[in-house]
Amino acid sequence: MSVDLQTVKRVAHLARIAVSEEDAERMTGELNAILGFVEQLNEVDVTGVEPMTSVTPMEMKKRQDAVTDGNKAADIVANAPATDENFFLVPKVVE
């Protein structure tokens, strides 16, 4: 399988990365080189093989459903580019 310019632009939008016409053209070539390389996986017979979900056999750890942390609003917004009274500020999303 290979990607065309339109697909690259669509994927870039899905990934929320602005691309120029020139970027998209370069990426098309690069992505096709990588997709060409991974193509060889199709040779492998995977009949009856389960996809890996965990590399080490382990049960999901559970913890007590109790509050162990919190009251750190100032810490949480400390690195944000724009805040107001412990809220993150974003451009208007609702008209």
Binding site: M1, A15, L31, I34, L35, L41, V46, E50, P51, M52
Partner: peptide, 27 residues
């Protein structure tokens, strides 16, 4: 480049062909 590849292989219609196949090979 890697975000783009990742987004592509997880996108609708390609998930089984790429991601699922790769996870089976990983097994």
């Amino acid at each position: 480049r890697r975000i783009m590849i990742g987004t592509y292989v997880l996108s609708a219609g390609y998930y089984d062909a790429y991601y699922l196949q790769a996870q089976k090979v990983r097994t």
